[in-house]
Design a binder for these strands. Structure first.
Lengths: 204, 204
DNA sequence: GTCTATAAAAGGATAGAC
DNA sequence: GTCTATCCTTTTATAGAC
């Protein structure tokens, strides 16, 4: 049993890579910086992952799987729609509270290279399609107000994501750089988003 | 009077630079590609703008001024609040229909380098603060439902921006890559965003 | 103002010793 | 597995002729 650290694990490298890639983006990231943060040298990076591209792919794929969530796990036909929507909002906001870098990272890297989506879609299922079908059903029953279910989905997600994605802009300008206060605002989002839309979408 | 083109104007370079910077970002952009699109060589870029950094600053500043809008121009105390909100939504959606790259460009570059905001704020006024004051007044009068005016502002902007910012993601997955249909959806946003929130925020 | 040529530096990747 | 040294390409930036 050695006292000092043994192998550089993949996990150590991935942690460092995630930090650098999410902060600087694929194009702005430097292999040197990743190596430094992982406490190793560049050669080791290429030993574990053959290239910058492959390392990025790995990091991005893991991020996308978290971002593109497991909505269908909560989904079955006789569920309370209010609780369902509330649940979606809560799990999204909680995710972004924990990993605030996710929204921007996903969106901006997909904007630069949209082809990437095709690769990813095979790995993770297409949950929202089922969700759309469920919501449509609830609309026909008169529980939810009639509208394009996709539009409803986008509106909910928009309200969840935007305050995290645009934090540097909003917190500095609208919150006058009071970061503590802005963090508190984000924590309240789980309730406030639902409260905001509750009266629009449900025919009580 | 010559037939063929005369000087390479600053404007020609800026057009090319805007195209490349907004597509690839600061880190991913290449001076060579900007030169090619402008129909000149790299040396000319450095002749007009001393460095990549300075060229980017110019492009970004112009983008930010469009993005950070002239809300206060529409603002006076006895205005109809419904029309005001409607007007804000319309001018934002119209802006993004015309320049879809703006949201991502601004947000992702500010995320990478938040310090940049300080420089920019001096150049363009801080309109939304006035807006917040106006909305607060309308709430006290009972015209608009009581809530944090900043939250209302963010929610409205979120609904306007997100479908443009996340287009690659949403159009491919939720719209199953039917780009025409998604474009039509975006064009309808001027009306649909207002319609969505109208019943929440106004005590009719 | 515009070009060619080139400097100077950075960054990704590999060879080879241990 | 881990390191040092090095290769090779890309990229920003400048010098200098016209």
């Amino acid at each position: 049993m050695k006292e000092e650290s043994v192998n550089v694990s993949e996990a150590t490298i991935l942690d460092a890579a995630r930090a650098v890639f999410t902060e600087k983006g694929m194009a702005g990231a430097r292999m040197q910086e990743i190596a430094d943060r992982a406490g190793i040298n560049k050669a080791m990076l290429h030993y574990y992952f053959r290239s910058k591209e492959k390392l990025f792919d790995r990091v991005f794929q893991e991020a996308f799987q978290q971002f593109w969530p497991k909505i269908e796990t909560q989904l079955n036909a006789d569920m309370n729609p209010k609780l369902l929507i509330k649940g979606i909002i809560e799990s999204y906001v909680e995710l972004f509270l924990e990993k605030p870098y996710l929204p921007n990272f996903i969106i901006s890297e997909l904007t630069r290279d949209p082809e990437r989506i095709e690769k990813l879609m095979q790995k993770s299922g297409v949950a929202p399609i089922q969700l759309v079908r469920y919501v449509k059903h609830q609309m026909e029953k008169g529980v939810i107000v009639e509208m394009d279910p996709r539009e409803l989905f986008i509106n909910v997600i928009a309200l969840c994501i935007f305050p995290f994605a645009a934090r540097p802009l909003i917190s500095r300008i609208i919150w006058e750089n009071d970061q503590d206060s802005y963090t508190a605002f984000l924590k309240r989002r789980k309730e406030s988003v639902f409260q905001f839309i509750e009266n629009i979408i449900f025919n009580d």
